[in-house]
Every structure is written in C-alpha cells, then in structure tokens.
C-alpha cells in the first residue's frame, strides 16, 4: 500500500491483485442509472476496497454524487430513477428483493455536503439513528450517555460540547455540525461511510480538522468521499476514481493518479485544464 512506485494500470480498472472477495466493501457490476430519460451512469463496474479512503473525483455532472447515492439507495427517493446492474455491498446485492433498505442504511452511513444536523439537541442527534433502529428505550440512561460520549469523543467533539449536550445542534459552528453528522453514524456501527463533498461548506481550518477526522476513520470504516477539491483528494484519499460523463475513466492509487495519470482526460482534469 505504501509503495509509490509507478505502476501501469489500464484505464479499464482491474484489481491490482486478484484477492479475496471480502477485501472489497462495494462492488458494482455494469451499473447504469437513468433520471427519467437522462442516463447519469453508464455501465459502471468498480470495486472499492475495504478499510481505506476512496475518492470520487470528476467535473460537475460526471455522476460521482449519483454513484455515491446509489450505495445507500437514497437515489430512490426521487421517483423517476431507473437502475440496471448490480451493486454488491458486503457481498450482498443491495437490489435483491430480500434486502431491507433500513438495514442497508444502517451499514452504509452518509454525510452530506451541507452539514445537516437535525433541529433537536446534540444529544438527541447522536442517538437519532439508534432511535430508528433499536428498541433503545430499553437501554438504561447511563448506557445511552456512554454511547453519546463515545461517539462524540471519536469525532473529537466531546470536550467542546459536553457541557451543552441539550442545546440545539444547529447552534454549533459548521465544522462542529459536520463532525456531529459523522458522530451520529457511529452508534449504528456502520461498515461504510459515504461522504458527499463533506468539506465544501467549511473554512480552511474546518476542512483541516474534518479531514483529520476522516483520516482517523480509516481501517475501522470504509470511506467513500466525493470531492471537487483536487488538493483534498490528493491529501486525504488512498485510492481515487476519476469519472467523466457517467463513466469510470481511471481508478488507481491516489499517489499514482496524481503523479502518473494513465488517461489523457484524467491528466487534464487533475491539472485543472478541464472541468
């Protein structure tokens, strides 16, 4: 993983080593998606490794957010979406009949572009997911407090907010709100965390802190992050997927993509000459 030696990778991505199935958290197979008549994804086949941070980059409208929003099936809330192909998450096709969307979204958490803590207290925000998934009312109060404390500690927010857990989450700064949005996923013990430009609403300092937090999530969670910010993709991701017009152009280690892009379009984009 840590070797930076340039290595030829074909633009049609194939896994570097034909390894075990369980090394991948997300595998898509010929995934196509239409919004009405407009095709947003074209035969996307991609394997996203477990326990690393994968970046999705590409110009606006290339389908990276659409792809991300397929992984927890949140795309479906717009009625006019048609999908073909397979998405296997943790070796289960999420479009199978017997898949519970609720359980899927428990395993696959999502962080949005604009921090969206709910207009309830910080404490209730952290426990919100638990309230939906568990009969958590049976949990004693001390255990609930522990859950909140652990989640907030993990995102480095506990010391800042421990004295005002009952105040409204929307009174926090944007950076704190975004951390809280990550914290509220953690009590559900997700395997995968999807992030849709999680830093684009933040200032430079906030970006740094949230990026550090994302880095700390590596290993324990599989993180897929959509970003417009090339510098961020370079800093904060292990592998990068470059998309263009609904297709995957290149998927390789981040260091290789930025040092030695295999595809002309990739090179133009990461140098800022395109998009």
């Amino acid at each position: 993983m840590s070797t930076v030696a340039p290595q030829l990778v074909t633009s049609e991505f194939t896994p570097p080593e034909a390894s075990h199935v369980e090394d991948y958290s997300i595998r898509t197979n010929d995934l196509s998606l239409w919004y009405g008549d407009f095709q947003a994804l074209m035969d996307v086949s991609v394997n996203i490794k477990k326990g690393i941070i994968t970046g999705l980059i590409g110009p606006s409208g290339c389908g990276k957010t659409t792809l991300l929003r397929c992984f927890n099936r949140i795309n479906e809330r717009y009625g006019n979406v048609t999908t073909t192909g397979d998405i296997e998450i943790l070796d289960k096709n999420i479009y199978d009949e017997d898949v519970s969307v609720r359980q899927l979204r428990r395993s696959v958490g999502m962080v949005f572009q604009r921090p969206n803590p709910l207009p309830i207290s910080i404490y209730d925000n952290v426990l919100f997911g638990m309230g939906i998934h568990d009969a958590f009312k049976s949990l004693p109060k001390s255990e609930r407090n522990d859950i909140v404390e652990n989640a907030l500690r993990e995102v480095d927010l506990w010391n800042t907010v421990k004295d005002r857990l009952k105040s409204r989450a929307t009174t926090l700064t944007l950076e704190q709100q975004q951390k809280l949005c990550i914290a509220r996923l953690l009590p559900l013990k997700p395997d995968i965390i999807l992030m849709d430009e999680p830093c684009s609403a933040l200032d430079a300092e906030g970006i740094e802190k949230v990026e550090n937090l994302i880095e700390s999530l590596r290993d324990e969670y599989t993180v897929v992050i959509v970003t417009h910010n090339m510098a961020q993709a370079r800093r904060a991701t292990d592998e990068c997927i470059f998309m263009l017009l609904g297709e995957i152009i290149e998927h390789t280690k981040t260091s290789e993509m930025f040092l030695n892009p295999q595809h002309e379009k990739t090179e133009m984009y990461i140098q800022g000459r395109y998009g």
């Binding site: 927890n72 949005f112 803590p117 939906i132 949005c181």
Partner: peptide, 9 residues
C-alpha cells in the same frame, strides 16, 4: 433534514 433522516434508515 429529510435526507439526514432517510440516510439514517
């Protein structure tokens, strides 16, 4: 807010 709720299941 709606997406937050839906994404949490």
């Amino acid at each position: 807010f709606r997406e937050a709720g839906i994404a949490l299941g």
